[in-house]
Write a protein that binds this DNA or RNA. Structure first.
Lengths: 344, 344
DNA sequence: TTGAAAGCGCTAACAG
DNA sequence: CTGTTAGCGCTTTCAA
């Protein structure tokens, strides 16, 4: 039962005061080189490991930043996290990663927990069911910087790193129109969510610009998961009238599910009978045949930028709370087989 | 500049002692119902949030368990994490998730960091480059339970939840042999790693059982990422002699990369000319055409089981350090098109 | 049922 | 260069 060893144990062993031990361990210039060496070697010998709770309590700094995302397994988020880690690790910060599973209650619990642990900053991409930024006010009230990324809110005045969803959707839709599509459906998530709202607006803008009539029935809202996507495509196929000749999907997950469904259960061919596009460039989108045309969101850049912004705010709290910064990361249309009508 | 509010602030406001506040906040029976209500409402009013560093320091409990995996984005690990979260959340614990990116130095830093934060337990799937369990000894020395999962070590005496890699590989290989394959190659990771060693042994056992000659040149070792897989298949194609008629890949990632490469760059057809199988049942494996035959590892169950074991040990430290428990989770062969030679 | 006092392990004045 | 002292915010005896 080796008990946790503390600086006091080291102090006793070396006949020094615990404050000297503390200084030595922190490589303070105010302690002799010899002493430092003795302390360090004794620490190693006894397997001393600093108690961060105690030290953080004292210094009121945790050198930790909280990261909250809906799902760590989604390509977009895991890449964004890699970007975040790269930036903060270089500055000596640690990250604690949590997932909300797109559930607001879970997200609130996580946010409160991170605050109770007094993280030095928060990077959050909110859940689909999060109504507003109310639950983040505990951070701002206590002057802890917050940066939103990807999923954001207009109200609340938070700084954020977002993706040009509208332009992305516009480009994707335009690309389909250029390919000769006329009856273009849009599968969207919750239109209360900024990212889906923007994609929806981009889709509409492209229709308008090309004098294609917008119709409400062309837009279908859901959770954009596999199951929902299949339900929707089934419903569409069951409806009377001409089928759509194009599908602008709110994400790749739903687009992939539909492509798989059509391939296995119908005689409808992609891209010959219907062209399909998505968002996020999931790894599977480059594996399916035909490849899925999609909008790359540069998630690594988004994560990196958000982290840099946050660290900046941590260093300069004035800036954090007197300004509201928005960085927009550019979209990139990746054209693959799913929208190539004429195999040229 | 609202400063962080503490129990002392509440005490002052309510003209009570901070110890009473603390009791009220912890719903102790040793405080009047009325007082409790007053405290709780004042706490809400002032937006009080407990400082966990202080309380954990005092109680020597963090109600937090550390989870370390190579990559959060891999299907296996993200599912395992979901299993872990489900179990621990029910018991009031929080998890902090970290990724080693399959790098031992990173893993060591993470492990030390988790110890410094005095997590109550550790769940770890080691990086590919981790040589042994030396870096985990700080936990055992201080009586903090550790459970390994998936990537494990025989030495060190740690309790673990593992997957029946050998049997999985055996079944996959046998399935190919049943389909008429004779020249079966094996793509493996580092053979120092138990999981790949076991898969390799299962592969060999299947050959032996069916009187197929094992040849060293049939086994290729790498990191099993996309790039390595493509290098290896290129090399194999360039070699003289007959091509292999089957590939037992150490994971789906490499198998998928090879299928894509063959499809785009050669006239070799899967499964007609070569059959391919992998491990982990990545989402893309069900999307590629033909579908990739794979071994499902039931990662959710693995995570769940490991978490249950750990919580058990936390509750009963005796058990944790006087026994060494190993749970093996069963494999499941998922047959898809990539190994169906005769389209029946 | 509440208060007083001590201390978790660490750091940071202040002193010497 | 090193020691003394106080205190971060909380919990927990002990006492009333």
């Amino acid at each position: 039962m080796t008990n946790n060893i503390t600086i006091h144990d080291l102090a006793k062993e070396l006949k020094l005061d615990s404050s000297t031990i503390s200084r030595a361990l922190n490589d303070s210039p105010r302690v002799g080189v010899k002493t430092k060496e003795r302390v360090l070697s004794k620490a190693k010998e006894l397997g001393y490991q600093r108690n961060l709770m105690a030290s953080n309590l004292r210094t009121k700094k945790t050198m930790t930043i909280g990261v909250v995302v809906p799902h760590i397994s989604r390509h977009f988020f895991s890449e964004a996290i890699d970007g975040i880690e790269q930036v903060v690790a270089g500055k000596g910060y640690r990250v604690v990663i949590s997932q909300s599973h797109d559930d607001f209650k879970t997200e609130k619990k996580i946010v409160d927990g991170l605050f109770m642990n007094r993280v030095d900053g928060l990077l959050i991409s909110s859940s689909m069911t999060t109504p507003n930024t109310e639950h983040l006010s505990i951070f701002t009230k206590n002057n802890i910087p917050v940066v939103l990324f990807d999923r954001y809110f207009e109200k609340g005045g938070f700084s954020k790193v977002v993706f040009e969803d509208k332009k992305g959707a516009f480009n994707l839709t335009q690309h389909m129109i250029d390919g000769g599509c006329k009856k273009i459906y849009h599968l969207t998530g919750d239109l209360e969510s900024q990212i889906y709202k923007q994609r929806y607006l981009g889709y509409r803008e492209a229709l308008k610009k090309n004098d294609l009539k917008f119709q409400k029935t062309f837009v279908r809202s859901s959770n954009l998961n596999k199951e929902d996507a299949i339900k929707i495509i089934k419903a569409i196929l069951n409806e009377k009238g001409q089928l759509p000749d194009a599908l602008v999907c709110g994400n790749d997950i739903s687009a992939l599910a539909i492509m798989k469904y059509l391939d296995e259960n119908t005689s409808i061919r992609v891209p010959e009978d219907i062209v399909i596009g998505g968002f996020s460039n999931e790894p599977a989108s480059d594996i399916i045949k035909p490849g899925l045309t999609t909008i790359d969101q540069h998630p690594f850049i988004i994560g990196k930028t958000a982290a840099e912004m946050l660290l900046n705010f941590i260093d300069d709290k004035e800036k954090a709370f007197q300004t509201s910064n928005t960085v927009v990361v550019r979209s990139e249309l990746i054209v693959r087989g799913s929208t190539k009508k004429n195999k040229s």
